[in-house]
Design a protein around this nucleic acid. Structure first.
Lengths: 200, 200, 200, 200
DNA sequence: ACAGCCGGGACGCCCCGTTAAT
DNA sequence: ATTAACGGGGCGTCCCGGCTGT
């Protein structure tokens, strides 16, 4: 009846279930019991891996959310010399299989950030680490794009990166509240227009 | 020792305290006891005015949040023939006295929306009403701007409105998580650039 | 199904059940749920009357234990001009109907005191209040006995009171651990001898 | 980094840490985790030496508490032909270096006894073994004193022993609750008076 | 109508003493 | 001798109804 002795997997199982519940209900409203019931892990096992719910939340940010952002938004930029094309590809990828999920639940980074930033300082800082990496990565991509002639040279890469990410997050947020793919498309169309204005 | 019997004021007192707590901690995490302790109202009185915590939340959206959005973002557009100028004025107004508050707590509409949209359908719809009014109002302003020659005629007003609002919300969200006025300015600078690209 | 609305009685019901459980298992080991189940009161009701388990414990000391000590050991001394006779009467009264209870569970003051004195300072102080009143009352009785010629004049009343109470508590404690009426009788016989030595 | 494999010492380390924690907080309230953290032993190691917390408690009684009582109260009597002198010496010895400890934490035998006697029957019996040995030893000392003319011949040695021990335990208990050396001295002064009355 | 006190359970997270696999 | 996994409470606090009085 007891789980096979596999700490790594147990830990991941907990984090996965937590990610799911937290994304749906928010971190504070997500009950540990719910998470445990969904993951099939017992309280004792969880307490062995995480000293508290907060610690589980921190791990969630560092291990799960961070990975999602990198995979969804940073990796596609690395393969492309043209950052704008890379970004549009990433957006289209999100609008593909995952459109439903994004519209129903939004971006986990934005959700957690909106909830926890003013509640727990360490939570905020860890989330900020992700945002910073995202901004850094996108700014670097913009600069690389400038070197390759895909982006106007007079564009402030840092500022463009910050604005692009903000607009992206805002678009997903508004679409989530509207539960509407049309709203999302409208917003992203606007973003596409903005990105086009960065072309030489 | 009992409060003067003034239903209207009692109701407002509760809503004000609730708005404060909810903004800081989120709706679900905000305790009724906390709200009541802060407002000095007893539980019986609260349940006389609101049948449940949810109902209080709905009233919060309809009466407090909605008013804030209208006052902050819609009213400034009505007085101006040039929507872009009006919007920049509204932004600067927010960056004035309220900058601290916006950075610490973000936009209450976005916060509530991120938390509650996937939790309670009616909550979402009421919030969506605000978003819709906002989009409608801004689209109308853009169209008025087009008539007066302040905005390019080929701009899709609805789409521009949706994108502008999304970018605005995204900017405040990112600034809140970064707890940084610089990040907010970077984003808004980007938004200003976008708005400039709508000029004839 | 809900209790008749009688705060005083509800409070007493909780205290009575708590007294029983605490006496059997100790304060820390006594579960709130057990106490509530035994008393038929719900947690909400309990939380209304006592803000915490500690507060319940304090009330237990102040309202229940204190009353028991006064009733068992102080009141009998007030009616008698001869304190030694009064004390022996009180002892015999304890050895009557309540002998079983005293042997099984000991003196609640001693039990609580041994457990909590080094755990919670306020608990200790409240218990000390009872001990002090007991010592004061018995010393006064000794002095009254001296005035009436029932006790040698050269006896230090305070010291005799302290020792008598200590011996009494020690006797009940040892009898409780031995679960033996014989041990209790042996000890009390010794106490009787000591008291006799205070006679003129 | 692992401890040297020294079963005997590990066992003692656990018992010592347990004795400390149990004395401060009581057996039931003392957490295994706390005990293990203080002793630097892991849970597995502990469960290797003791099958359960209860078993650890039993060993505590049999190996640690019993030794303390023998050392403190029985050994001093063996060297003396005059039991009263021996007892007073033992008392003074306790009032020397260990006074602080006795006042803060009381006698471990009494503390454990008050807590556990009505909770666990085997616990009680093991503690009773110590009490019995104590009574036996002191009664034997009284009889030896009678043979040597230090104690009145008509004294019932068993009864005097029981009463003396009860008074001693009561005195330490009351002093512990009062956190007062004066109270202890008062009680012990009374005990001294009683012992003097046993002289021929 | 309005406000206040009392009472109701369910559930929150944490931590407990234990067992089993390594 | 160690770490992983186990569940069952621990107390506190939640949101919420009735009953009582103004």
């Amino acid at each position: 009846m007891s789980r096979p002795r596999n700490p790594q997997e147990t830990r991941r199982t907990i984090l996965d279930a937590a990610f799911d519940k937290v994304r749906r209900q928010g971190f504070q409203a997500a009950g540990l019991n719910d998470i445990l019931a969904e993951s099939g892990v017992t309280k004792g096992a969880m307490y062995h891996h995480f000293p508290s719910k907060m610690a589980l939340g921190y791990a969630l940010v560092d291990e799960t959310v961070k990975g999602r952002i990198e995979e969804w938004w940073l990796r596609p930029l690395e393969d492309e010399a043209d950052p704008i094309a890379g970004l549009l590809a990433a957006i289209n990828s999100r609008l593909g299989a995952a459109a439903d999920e994004m519209i129903r639940l939004g971006c986990p980074l934005a959700t957690l950030s909106q909830e926890m930033a003013s509640v727990d300082e360490e939570f905020r800082q860890r989330l900020e680490g992700i945002y910073r990496a995202w901004r850094k990565g996108m700014a670097r991509a913009f600069r690389r794009g400038q070197q390759h002639g895909f982006v106007r040279g007079d564009v402030d890469a840092d500022q463009a990166a910050a604005f692009t990410i903000a607009a992206l997050q805002g678009a997903f947020g508004m679409a989530k509240n509207a539960q509407s793919l049309d709203v999302l498309r409208d917003c992203l169309q606007g973003l596409t227009g903005y990105l086009a204005s960065l072309r030489p």
